[in-house]
Design a binder for these strands. Sequence first.
DNA 1: ATAACATATGAACATTTATTCATATTTTCA
DNA 2: TGAAAATATGAATAAATGTTCATATGTTAT
Lengths: 108, 108
Amino acid sequence: MDNKNSISKIKEAIARSNEVLDALADLYKVFADATRVKILVALTQSEMCVGDISEFLEITQSAVSHQLRVLKTGGLVKSRRDGKTIVYSLADAHVRTMIDCGMQHLTE
Amino acid sequence: MDNKNSISKIKEAIARSNEVLDALADLYKVFADATRVKILVALTQSEMCVGDISEFLEITQSAVSHQLRVLKTGGLVKSRRDGKTIVYSLADAHVRTMIDCGMQHLTE
DNA sequence: ATAACATATGAACATTTATTCATATTTTCA
DNA sequence: TGAAAATATGAATAAATGTTCATATGTTAT
């Protein structure tokens, strides 16, 4: 059957891009947490240090620090030291695009 | 301080859109699994029944069914009955856009 | 009606994940 | 140098998640 044939073509295509699709899921995983999303959205407005984020999200400094590590490992934020504090900001413009893309889906 | 002031402005903005940001994280959650991503990408090529998906992903029919429910609850796929089988397809064009957006981030 | 087929569902289990607590590290300033 | 401040890290715990197994539901064809 023709349908059968095209399904197996798709199967091959998926198998070929298996690693990419795993990476794609991993990328979405980084966005898939309310705390991280709020951190990212906040960083679209201004760079911030850990203490500021902790304060305005009203969660412990440790929790923020752990989540920032996830975001940094995922390549979504970068950091620089400024005296005693460490200032976080979005890694690049793509992050903003990803958020906008999701928001657009929500608001249809 | 001016920085202090702008941080508290951002805090208010985040608090105001709290529910939206929770929903945004929930949306990303639906994409945040390799099995679901592969199902979605497959569906960008052609609508498919559960058995086809199960076969080409080489996972049990039950697992596929469970994941399709997550995708459907999340509003990413829709289904229609065709005789004995149930055919799944992408819910709308936004899904494709979300995937493209993620892919673009990966391939920079 | 009943057998066969396709899909859905619920319970159980293992794995992952987010947070907290305690503590380590690094920098500033007295 | 030593105390204080800001951040990072590791272990522990609770909650969420994905898969499998067994079984239920719904559809077709005999």
